[in-house]
Structure formats: C-alpha cells, structure tokens
C-alpha cells in the first residue's frame, strides 16, 4: 500500500497536470461509498452508480455553467462575487410570471435580458468606472440580494414545476445537454479562440495588452456580460431541479464556484486558466458536499457532531490546498 502510494507520488511529480484527476479519484473512492454507491455486484454498482452520478450532475450543473464564466473572469485578473445573488435574482424575476405555456415567451427571454444587463452593469463598473472587481461585485452582491428580497419577501416561490416541459432541464438529460452546450462554446471554441489569448494577455499585463492593440475595456465588459448570460442559464438549471426560489437561495454559491475554479488550476492573479480543471474542481466540491450530506443522513450515529458543519472547514482546506499546489506548479515551471 505504502509502496503503491510512493509510486503514485513519484509519477505525479513528473506530471503535475495529473495531480487534480488523481486527487478527484481519491476523493471519489472515499466518498462515493458513503453516498450509497454499492460495489457488491455489477448490477448493484450500475444502479447505485447511476443514481449517484445523476444526483451529482444535476446538482452541480449550475455551478459548472458558472465556473466556465468565472474561469474567464479570473483569467483577466478579475473576480465576480455577485453571481450567486445574480442567479437568485434572475430566478426571482422569472418566478413572478404565470407558470403557463406563455412562460417560455415572457419569463425566459426576460430572464436572459436580466442576466445580460446585470453582467453588463458589473463590467461597466469595473472597466469604465475603474472600480476594483472585488469591490464592484461585492457591491452588486448586496444590491442584487436586496432586490431579491424586494421581489420575493420571505416567501418561497415554487411554481416552476408547473411550467410545461420545464422540469426536463432538472433531469440528467437536460443538465447534460446544457453542460454540453456551454462547453461546446465555452470549451471547444473558447479554448482555441483568439479571445482567450487576449484575455490571458489582459490578465497577465494590462498595460502590455493595451500596447498590443487589445481593446481592454471592451473585452472586460464582454466577459462580465457573458457571465450574466451564464447566470441566466444557471438559474434555469437550478429552478428546474429545485422547483422554487427564495430570497436566500444560493447564498455562498459564488464562493463555492471560486473555490472550484481555483482548485482547478486557475490563478487568482490572472494570466492563466483551465476549463477542464474548473469542471473537475466543481465536481470535487460537489462530491464533498454530497458525501457529507449522506454521511449525515446514514451514519450520523458514528459521529460525535453534525458532520454537515464540516463542509466549510473542508472546502476552506481545499481552497488553500489548491492555491498552494498552483503556486508550487508555477514556481517549478518558472
């Protein structure tokens, strides 16, 4: 066992890119059985594994969608703390509409417009008015949360399941399709695009980017606007699975997304970023959350305290670990 670990460690030192997948596999190996995946027979494994994967994917679909945008934002050296509130607000706006067939032509386009507008607002604050991203989006975080409360009060708005066809987005096929669509654009196109190069240069050295003819302000506004559109997509995924939204929905989501993206290898200082890494990061956070929830449900008698409370402790630990590993990776490369 120890010898096996040593071999793995040595292989990882040679290829630091494998570190994240291996960590993810290790995490799955520990937490999947706790969450109810059975290994007794092949049939058992197929059935329980499918349930587990469905749960995992539908649950983390909004986060994956948001992580794509956050990766691009971190590349530019920015950050967006308002996305949790933004998703909730877009959902809240849509929740105020009648859940009939008309929902598709009224609430959905309006939700998209709302997301684009809010993202554009963030980008304009940051690029044109030169407010530091962390402050600008902290401001909009409170602003949007406040608007949620104005719209929803203390009620839980649960009409989404009544919209015809809407719940499909909360099921496995719908979630997978949304993720695939976001990836077709965000992954395949973006990864090989000139835009990505420009964002990386912009994040690495903004002055040099300006001298190299990159329209810096326009690019920043664009990135945050796209983030707004992704917040709309995430709002659909979330409400289709959850069925309802309240003023406090998704509190802290932005921090989980940032943890996931940083864990995935994107540097907070800008100038580098990896989409695949971000997705693995999201899944790691989701597996952790799911594992702890199951442990609480099925094995609480074994533990002296509520294990759910460990969630933030472990996530904080993951974040620090992720940043540390990235730094080491950079320093050995440089």
């Amino acid at each position: 066992m120890i010898r096996f670990l040593l071999i793995v460690l040595r292989a990882l030192r040679a290829r630091p890119k494998l570190l994240l997948p291996v960590l993810f596999a290790a995490e799955l190996a520990i937490l999947a059985p706790i969450s109810g995946v059975q290994f007794d027979t092949a049939a058992d494994f197929a059935r329980s594994g499918r349930l587990y994967a469905t749960d995992l994917i539908t649950q983390s679909a909004p986060m994956i969608v948001l992580a794509v945008g956050m990766t691009a934002i971190l590349m530019t050296g920015g950050i967006d703390l308002s996305i949790g509130a933004m998703v909730a607000l877009v959902a809240a706006v849509m929740a105020r509409f009648d859940p009939g067939p008309n929902f598709w032509v009224t609430a959905v386009p309006l939700g998209l417009l709302c997301g684009l507008g809010l993202g554009w607002f963030n980008g304009t604050l940051i690029a044109r008015l030169d407010v530091p991203p962390i402050i600008a989006t902290l401001g909009t975080l409170f602003l949007l949360r406040g608007l949620c409360e104005v719209l929803l009060g203390n009620e839980e708005f649960g009409t989404f399941f009544d919209v015809p066809g809407y719940t499909w987005f909360g099921r496995l096929s719908g979630s997978l399709l949304v993720i695939a669509a976001v990836f077709a654009v965000g992954g395949s196109w973006f990864y090989r695009s000139r835009l990505r190069r420009e964002l990386l240069m912009l994040g690495g050295n903004r002055v040099a980017a300006r001298y190299a003819g990159i329209p810096v302000f326009r690019r920043i506004v664009q990135v945050y606007t796209v983030m707004g559109a992704l917040a709309f997509v995430a709002a659909i995924c979330f409400t289709a699975r959850n069925g309802s939204v309240s003023a406090t929905s998704l509190e802290g989501l932005e921090l989980q997304v940032i943890v996931a993206v940083v864990l995935g290898g994107t540097r907070v200082e800008g100038g580098n970023g990896s989409l695949i890494g971000s997705v693995i990061g999201v899944l790691m956070v989701a597996v952790l959350a799911e594992g702890l929830r199951s442990a609480e449900m099925f094995h609480s008698d074994l533990l002296p305290f509520k294990i759910q409370h460990l969630k933030y402790v472990l996530m904080g630990g993951l974040l620090v670990l992720g940043v540390w590993v990235n730094r080491r990776h950079v320093s050995t490369a440089g």
Binding site: R197, G204, N205, G271
Partner: peptide, 16 residues
C-alpha cells in the same frame, strides 16, 4: 512593463 507578459510562453507572446 509595456510589451510582455513575463510568465507567458514565447509562443503565446509571438502569436498575439
């Protein structure tokens, strides 16, 4: 300060 992103690769630098 005005020309390069120092930790970017030579290839990335040129391809801009």
């Amino acid at each position: 300060r005005q020309g390069l992103v120092l930790d970017h690769s030579l290839g990335e630098t040129l391809s801009v």
